[in-house]
Amino acid sequence: MVRPLVWIGARSPGALTLPPADPTPSQLYAPRGVYLDDQTLIVADSGNHRVLIWHRIPDRDGQPADVVLGQPDFYSEGPQAAGRGSRHGMHLPTGVMVIDGRLCVADSWNHRILVWNRVPETSNAPPDRVIGQADLDECEPNRGGGVTGCGFYWPYGIGWVAGRFYVADTGNRRVLSWNSIPEDRQPPDLVLGQNDECSHAENRGEGPSPCSFRWPHAIAGNGTTLYVADAGNHRVLGWTPIPARDTPACLALGQRDFQSAWEMPHTPPGPSALRFPYAVACASGRLIVADTANNRVLMWHTLPRAGVFLPADMVIGQPDFAGNGENRWQAVERDTLCWPYGISCHNHRLAIADSGNNRVIIWDISV
């Protein structure tokens, strides 16, 4: 049985009352992204428009962060558009990831990816470069012009799968991929979900299909399969093998076929349905999905490769597959969830950005 280990963020005062969200080294406000490895915990504290870094995996509740990025100190908050205020401020950061020692942050509402050549050890350290904008002074969608392969509109998610760099360019309804972390204005090696680099219509201007997106939000995978959380279509799509060109997916979790995008808010979800799945993770032969609007996390013990509506093997945050209430419609407890937006899995640890509860919970999933 999985069990929660550490609670990062302020404790709830009880019942359904949320913990305080004032920025401090140990308090969070609606975190949407998280990254975990052997030594490091990194959290996109989205509501406070900052990223927090722990250089050692926390082993006690409420442990304060070591480094803050995007704000001048641990007690400041507020969106900072590039070129207005701080050139390296943030506006709703979401995806966070360390790739070959480099920290990448999806600074989504500044429409850019920020890159540090190493994980910063001092607060408010400026990024070494930016992807998606000409420089750190720019923050307009699609670089202030039309859609191309070198700009973004709300890039919520980033991924590193089989040596390839991926961006969930959510507002442009597509996933972009490069064969390495790109330089500025480097065109993508792959566009998934659109006919070309200049198209951006929802579901390619038609209905859902195995090769279209509504809100692609997160990316994960291994050397064999690529997974994309297509939150707006209430599904996770999968490609086996990892696509080298725009091809239809062979897996659709959460829907009964590739043409459906049903949302079922008032019925027990069961082990197969999804409602706004905003995050996906792949580790140790398991697939893990944040079924955000059902206030739960689902786990498949073996990686699904092809098919539709395949049932999960385990649920976290609810008593069973029928439950979907915020904090189980009871009190904020150590093992409840309210709108989990981000997840990261490393070996036997799972970090969940429990956004609606203003916290991150680290779980032991070794059993």
Rank of each mutant, 00 (worst) to 15 (best):
G285Q: 07
A279T: 04
A322M: 11
T267Q: 14
S272T: 15
G325V: 00
P248M: 05
A312Y: 06
A312N: 05
V289A: 03
T240M: 04
D320A: 08
F321D: 13
T247D: 07
F309Y: 15
L237W: 03
S284Y: 04
L303E: 06
S272R: 15
I242R: 07
P268F: 08
W239I: 00
R256Y: 06
A249H: 01
L287C: 05
N295W: 03
M299D: 03
W239M: 03
F258Y: 15
P277Q: 02
C250K: 09
P304L: 12
R245D: 11
P319E: 08
P248R: 10
A281G: 08
M299L: 15
A306G: 00
L237P: 02
A261E: 12
P277W: 03
A312G: 11
Q259Y: 15
M264R: 15
T247Q: 14
I316D: 04
A322N: 13
L237K: 02
P248C: 08
P241A: 09
G323M: 10
R296N: 01
Q259S: 14
Q259G: 09
M264Q: 14
A290V: 02
V315G: 03
M314Q: 13
S260D: 12
D257I: 06
T240V: 09
D320C: 09
P268C: 07
R275C: 12
R286A: 11
Q255P: 10
D291M: 05
N295H: 15
R328S: 04
D246I: 01
D257K: 04
V297A: 00
M299N: 01
V315L: 04
L251C: 08
P248H: 11
F321G: 09
G238E: 01
N294L: 00
W239N: 00
S272H: 13
A261V: 01
F276P: 00
L253T: 00
A283N: 13
T240E: 10
L287D: 00
V280I: 13
L298V: 04
L303C: 02
F309G: 07
P311T: 07
G238P: 11
P268Q: 10
C282K: 02
Q259I: 05
H301G: 08
S260W: 08
A279I: 02
H301L: 14
F258N: 07
E326Y: 13
P268E: 11
L253K: 05
L310N: 08
E326H: 13
A306T: 15
L237I: 07
T292G: 01
D246T: 14
P248K: 07
T302P: 00
R328W: 03
A312W: 01
I242T: 05
R275P: 04
A244Q: 15
A322D: 15
Q255A: 12
C282I: 05
A261K: 14
A281N: 03
G307L: 02
G270Y: 04
A261P: 05
A261Y: 05
F309K: 02
T240N: 07
A279S: 15
A283G: 07
P311H: 09
T247P: 04
G254R: 01
A312Q: 09
H301W: 07
D246S: 15
N324K: 14
A306P: 00
F258R: 03
G285L: 02
E263L: 11
H266F: 14
